Simulated assay, not measured.
Amino acid sequence: MQLVARVSSAPDRLRVLAPGLLACGVVGAASAFLSEHYGAPVMLFALLLGMAMNFLSGDGPCRPGIEFCARQVLRIGIALLGLRITIAQVVALGWGPVVLVIACVVLTIVVSMLAARLLGFNTLFGLLSGGATAICGASAALALSAALPSHPQKDKATLFTVIVVSALSTVAMVLYPMLTQALGYDPALAGQFLGATIHDVAQVVGAGYSISTEAGDVATLVKLMRVAMLLPVILFASLLTRRSGQDQGGERPPLLPWFAVAFALLVMLNSTGWVPKVVQSAGNDVSRWFLVAAIAGIGMKTHLKELATVGLKPVVLMVGETLFLAVLALALLRWLA
């Protein structure tokens, strides 16, 4: 009976959500157009255009769809990231890049959480910003935000993290290839450094292939290994959320959110070789569009005036995280070489 009731109410639910979903979709399409023509990250354009349209998230017909896009569409997009990587891709690189990625991700997140506390922030903000820096930029920020406990400032913290990490990723895409050339790195070593340090996948690809095809291939695989670290970090965030729910007397959330489980299952399915290339490509495209629409929805929910109140310290924190990651990667590559 409950299933029948849900099916019968689906058209009504869709009518309620349609205005907000359409608004997020239009902003996402406009962001993709601007990104293709000006070369800046599509996530950054989606955030900025979304914030310009924040009046739509007030009490009105668009609000339910925007809320749905910022939560459920976001989770589906994160789950579909699993179609980007396979276990064989990770194994083929050998133990050196694996050690590099695990050490960079773990140490960057730990140092970020400690630095956040020293600067007077909630430790979870350090996990959010450190995870975005260490794993895969805006996508990691959105995934971790979805797994962390609810907080009045969570949306603002997430939006701020995505803006700063996208900007820093663009700067790194320009500067880091020049740094690898100045250090005399060969294409394989340069690819490992770029894949281990630049935040967003698109910027890693752009930086790697600007050096050579070999550097681009290695950078992409190392970057996808960092994306694979999203699952254990989400698990860690979920454990903190469960503890928080227990301490506050609230209901304990599941150990792993459904989107994290779906992410892991898609990685394993993709590793079997049964998934056709066309399905992988379609899944990646859908994931990208869903994440862009979701970040547009999050932007619509945030007012610029509120974002401006965060001050300088969060920017210092994230710049410091980026520099720490770069220095750590250089040191580890020197040791592993």
Rank of each mutant, 00 (worst) to 15 (best):
Q2E: 15
V4N: 14
R6T: 15
V7M: 15
S8T: 15
S9D: 14
P11H: 11
P11V: 12
R13V: 13
A18G: 11
P19Q: 09
P19V: 05
G20V: 04
G20A: 01
V26C: 09
A29S: 12
L34W: 08
L34S: 02
S35T: 04
E36V: 12
E36Q: 15
Y38D: 14
A40P: 00
F45R: 03
G50S: 04
L56R: 02
G60D: 10
C62V: 09
R63I: 08
G65P: 08
I66G: 01
L81F: 04
G82S: 08
T86F: 07
A88E: 15
Q89G: 13
V90Q: 00
V91N: 15
L93I: 02
G96N: 09
V99C: 14
V101Q: 05
V106K: 06
V106P: 06
L107P: 02
L107M: 11
V111C: 05
A116R: 02
G120V: 07
G120D: 08
G120F: 01
F121Q: 05
F125S: 05
G126M: 10
G131L: 06
C136Y: 01
A141F: 07
L148Q: 03
P149N: 04
S150N: 14
P152M: 10
K154P: 10
D155R: 12
V162G: 04
V164G: 08
S169R: 00
T170V: 06
V171L: 13
M173E: 01
M173I: 01
V174F: 08
L175E: 12
P177V: 02
M178R: 13
L179K: 03
L183W: 13
G184H: 09
A188Y: 10
L189A: 13
L189I: 13
F193I: 07
L194D: 04
A196F: 04
A202L: 02
Q203M: 03
Q203F: 01
G206M: 05
A207L: 07
G208W: 09
T220Y: 03
L224M: 06
V227F: 05
V227Q: 05
A228G: 08
M229S: 03
L230R: 00
V233R: 00
L240V: 13
R243V: 06
G245K: 06
Q246E: 14
D247E: 15
G250E: 08
E251N: 14
L255D: 05
A260C: 12
V267H: 09
S271Q: 10
T272A: 11
T272H: 06
W274R: 14
S281Y: 15
A282D: 12
G283M: 07
D285E: 13
W289G: 11
I298F: 06
G299R: 02
H303T: 12
L304V: 11
K305A: 09
K305L: 11
E306G: 01
L307F: 03
V315K: 02
M318C: 05
G320R: 06
E321G: 05
F324G: 00
F324S: 05
A326N: 10
L328D: 00
L328C: 01
L330I: 12
L336Q: 00
